[in-house]
């Protein structure tokens, strides 16, 4: 059994990479590697995970410089010359080792008005939305976000402009703009327009390239730009 040379970030914003040697296994994931280090080599290593099956969005880290969900990333696919460099996600404050503070990321979902606002109560019948309607299809295309922060970490505009809401929050806003039950569309478009919102996107498409769920936040952001344009022309913004 060969060994894998792993460099793992230790510390907070200031720190250094620490070297470990981890035994290789078939179908080994990057999360398996980190877990092995924490359980067998250094119990003080801090990292975050929950479901281990690509649903919860907790285990995202930087692997060889690329943000990835580590539970579904096979070592075979990312190791270069049997080496891995694992660090915390970019664009988020590091709490310790591989754990980042996600508050800024989720606060931006709130700033983008990322929560649904409807008018029906539990006593009303449920809304019927045609699955093949154009708007519903656009919602479907973006709704499976797991909030892992990979897109946010991959985005250069977030790095340059810390106020920028980022791909995930804007993608969430777009799914609500296209939700026919939602009633705060103008307020939401106002929240996502401008320098900190959809208009800051340079269409680099790093978010779309890296999204582990295969979503296209870039398309969502383009949709928001079109929706804001329409809203401005109608005098609604």
């Amino acid at each position: 059994m060969s060994a894998l040379a792993v460099e793992v970030w230790r510390g907070g914003a200031q720190g250094a990479f620490q070297s470990f040697e981890v035994p290789r296994h078939p179908s080994q994931t990057v999360l398996d590697v980190v877990t092995y280090i924490q359980r067998s080599l250094d119990a003080t290593l801090a990292y975050r995970f929950a479901c281990r099956v690509g649903m919860c969005g907790s285990c995202a880290m930087s692997v060889n410089g690329v943000p990835r969900w580590t539970c579904r990333t096979h070592v075979d696919k990312v190791a270069r010359e049997n080496k891995l460099v694992i660090g915390p996600l970019r664009n988020l404050p590091v709490i310790r080792d591989l754990v980042t503070d996600m508050r800024g990321f989720f606060d931006k979902w709130a700033r983008a008005k990322g929560s649904f606002a409807g008018t029906k109560t539990k006593r009303d019948d449920f809304a019927r939305v045609a699955p093949d309607s154009a708007d519903r299809r656009k919602v479907d295309a973006g709704i499976e976000c797991i909030g892992c922060g990979v897109c946010y970490s991959a985005c250069d505009v977030v790095a340059w402009n810390p106020d920028y809401l980022g791909p995930a929050a804007l993608n969430r806003a777009w799914t609500l703009v296209k939700d026919e039950r939602d009633v705060v569309k103008h307020e939401r478009l106002r929240a996502v327009a401008g320098d900190a919102g959809c208009h800051a996107c340079h269409t680099h498409m790093s978010c779309t390239e890296r999204c582990p769920m295969g979503l296209a936040p870039t398309a969502a952001i383009s949709g928001l730009k079109r929706a804001v344009l329409g809203s401005v022309l109608k005098g609604e913004l």
Binding site: R190, A191, A193, G194, D195, G197, H199, K225, V228, L229, V232, L237
Partner: peptide, 12 residues
């Protein structure tokens, strides 16, 4: 600058 003004700059 308002969101509308920033949007108008983008449109311009």
């Amino acid at each position: 600058m308002s969101a509308k003004a920033q949007s108008l700059l983008w449109i311009a």
